Amino acid sequence: MNFKTGKNKEWGVWNNLNDYFKEKRIDQLHKATLSISNQTFAIKKMCVFILTATLGIMQNFRKENNCSDYSGIILCGTIIMLFYLADSVAYYYQSKLRNLMRKIELEIKENNNAYCKDCGQCRENIKLGSKVFPKIVLLKKSAVNGSHFFYVVLFLICIVFFYLLPF
């Protein structure tokens, strides 16, 4: 290996050792992002499992006591809210890792002068640095996104279960 020219078969297409390590870092971040993605799916499955058990217990309790109070809907809403918060935190860190991967990718493009020829958007994104994906945007995206519609549907199912179905 020649450190002055950066020629090495293991480095692949990268011009220097720094870019090679950045590529490895992107690979590690990608694996961590996939792991978090799998965990968010597990969070949703666990939420459904716990809600099913809770609805069964609450239905049995309603039959025995011949009552319909708001405790069941409050309990289900609390369970859904806790899982929603856990899912939002996981989504936030997933977005943050993707943001970091994007910044490293832009640094590699800057080092190798690999820009889009049609537009200067890559250069503008590099100049913006951390402002490409501001923290407030990540927080908003993690709080409200398409996958969280699942929790709204679960809450509606709980309402239907408790108030529209006879006990």
Rank of each mutant, 00 (worst) to 15 (best):
N8P: 02
F150P: 02
I57L: 13
D19T: 07
K140H: 00
S130Q: 13
G72L: 09
E110W: 06
A32I: 06
Y115F: 15
E105I: 02
S88T: 02
G77Y: 08
I157Q: 03
F61W: 11
D87E: 04
G72K: 09
V89S: 01
I57N: 06
R123I: 13
W11N: 03
I79S: 05
N99K: 15
F161L: 12
T78P: 01
K7C: 05
I43W: 05
N125S: 14
I73M: 14
M101W: 01
L85E: 11
K135C: 00
K127N: 09
Q28S: 13
L97Q: 05
K127T: 05
L82T: 09
F61A: 06
K24P: 00
N15H: 08
E23R: 09
E110T: 02
G129R: 09
T5W: 05
S68F: 08
L97F: 14
F155G: 01
K9T: 10
W11T: 06
Y151R: 01
F49W: 06
M101P: 00
R62A: 13
N2D: 15
N99R: 13
Q28V: 06
D27F: 11
K109A: 12
D19V: 04
N145T: 01
N60H: 15
I36C: 02
F161V: 10
F167W: 07
G12C: 06
S35H: 14
N65W: 11
C158S: 15
G12F: 05
K141N: 04
L154M: 13
M101K: 09
F49Q: 07
C158N: 11
V160P: 03
E105C: 04
V137Q: 03
K135M: 01
L100Q: 13
K44S: 04
D69L: 14
A114Q: 10
L75S: 13
S88P: 03
V160H: 11
S71E: 08
Y93A: 01
I43M: 03
L97T: 01
K24A: 05
S88H: 02
R123K: 15
W14M: 11
K63F: 09
L85R: 03
N18Q: 14
D118K: 15
K141F: 00
V152A: 14
Q121Y: 12
V89H: 00
H30K: 14
I108G: 02
V160G: 07
C122M: 06
K103L: 15
I108Q: 08
A143M: 06
G56H: 03
L139C: 11
Y91Q: 07
Q39C: 02
N38F: 07
I80K: 04
L154P: 11
I80E: 02
N2T: 06
L128Q: 09
S88K: 01
I104Y: 06
D69T: 15
G72I: 05
L82Y: 07
F21V: 08
L106V: 08
G6C: 06
